[in-house]
């Protein structure tokens, strides 16, 4: 993990803001001034509750939304504003997304073969039908499905298999970055483990980076190298997995950690949960600045806040 700094930066998000004007007088600030970097081959876990802006962040990065403000650099190219043709092509081939609901993310009227081949169809990445077929078969094998699945429709697959197809669709493009947007939250526990194992093995095998967006901290802890905690559109804390899980500083992170249920009935029954309420906490995220706790560990807060938290922990 200390090697992070030597590794090449793949994605750099600087002061990203994503606002949605609802009416003339009311704007939803889904993402408000967040910055982070993802290195090549790294798994970055982005956690937060619903409405924290974690999915919006993913969608802004992959440009499903037009960012309101801020700069996003991917593979050395600026992808935040209006992009030239080459940049669009680079973005569309090198960055991909896996969605939350495996049923909704697959077109019910297409066969698995065509679903997976969509990317290579669009970018003309094969020379013959034979090659196209072989490419799909190879990817199917990689995600743990068989050739026979290529001729099925999505409703002929189980939830876990559907998600594998979703992964295959992203993987066939040999991406540098995969954004997994709540990719496991709609699955059963035992299937979640399968998909997470698959993602991890893909990362090891292909060296692609993964932005893993989730609300399930135990899975995030398991899969991620680096973690960012989002709350109300602000990145309140970020650091390596150890930083965040073992030395959490921000009260929100600490409340999140304490809320993770543990499978130990004797202790879990009356384990107290830390409560955190932004409204009554007296904090104002927009006043805070990033404080370095260690090289890798950053916390958002005013000087006084951070001092106080560190004192509380000591």
């Amino acid at each position: 993990m200390q090697a992070n700094d030597q590794r090449e930066v793949l994605l750099k998000v600087e002061n990203l803001k994503q606002y949605f004007p609802i009416s003339r007088s009311y704007t939803v600030k889904a993402v408000d001034d967040i910055s982070f970097t993802i290195h090549r081959g790294e798994i970055y876990g982005l956690v937060g509750e619903s409405g924290s802006g974690k999915s919006t962040t993913g969608r802004s990065i992959i440009r499903l939304y037009d960012p309101t403000d801020g700069k996003i650099t991917f593979c050395g190219q600026d992808i935040s504003g209006k992009m030239p043709r080459d940049t669009v092509r680079m973005l569309r081939t090198k960055m991909h997304m896996i969605f939350q609901d495996p049923m909704a993310s697959l077109n019910p009227r297409e066969k698995v073969m065509d679903i997976i081949a969509e990317g290579i169809d669009i970018h003309q990445m094969y020379s013959s039908q034979e090659e196209r077929r072989e490419m799909v078969y190879a990817i199917l094998k990689k995600v743990g499905l068989s050739k026979e699945h290529a001729n099925r429709y999505p409703h002929q697959l189980s939830g876990g298999q559907r998600q594998r197809v979703g992964i295959a669709r992203a993987l066939i493009m040999k991406p540098d970055l995969i954004i997994a947007d709540e990719a496991i939250s709609a699955l059963d526990v035992s299937i979640q483990a399968q998909v997470v194992n698959l993602l991890k093995s893909i990362q090891v095998e292909t060296g692609c980076a993964i932005l893993f967006i989730a609300h399930d901290l135990s899975m995030v802890r398991y899969i991620s190298d680096t973690i960012g905690v989002l709350h109300l559109g602000h990145l309140v804390e970020s650091g390596t997995t150890a930083d965040v899980f073992e030395h959490a500083v921000h009260p929100y992170t600490r409340s999140l950690l304490s809320a993770i249920p543990r499978p130990n009935p004797l202790l879990e029954k009356d384990r107290p949960i830390m409560t955190y309420d932004y409204k009554t906490s007296g904090l104002d995220y927009s006043q805070g600045t990033y404080h370095d706790i260690t090289d890798t560990h950053k916390v958002l807060g005013t000087d006084a806040d951070v001092q106080r938290w560190l004192k509380e922990l000591a």
Binding site: D188, V189, P261, R262, P263, N264, P265, E268, K269, R271
Partner: peptide, 8 residues
């Protein structure tokens, strides 16, 4: 399906 909930 959440064993943590069960434990609690």
């Amino acid at each position: 399906h959440d064993l943590g909930v069960v434990a609690r």
